[in-house]
Amino acid sequence: MIQRKLSIILENKPGALVRVVGLFHQRGYNIESLHVDPVEDLKEYKFVEDKLNIKLKEGEVSHLIIATTVNDNLLRQILRQINKLIDVLIVEEVK
C-alpha cells in the first residue's frame, strides 16, 4: 500500500472540518497528515466553479489536504464517504 493524498474542497463553516476528520476515525481510516486553508486566491480554484457551475467568493470555502495509506478499494470507499458529507463540494485524489 502507498500513501495517497486527498484534496477536499469544503464549505468554510464551523464544524465542517471536524465532520471530515471525524469520518476517518469513525470508519477506521488513519490520517497521516492534514493541511487546511481558507481559499483566498480564487484563480487556482476555477475548476471548482466549472465543475459545480457555481461562483465562489473569497474565504467562502476551504481547501483540505489529507494523506492516508490505503489500497484502491478503500480509497474509493473513503472518497465516496467524504463526498456524502453535506458540506463537501469536491473530493479527489491528488495524482
Binding site: 478499494n73 470507499q77 463526498n83
Partner: peptide, 8 residues
Amino acid sequence: VDYSSVSK
C-alpha cells in the same frame, strides 16, 4: 441512491 453503499 447512495454511492458509498455500492461495492462497499
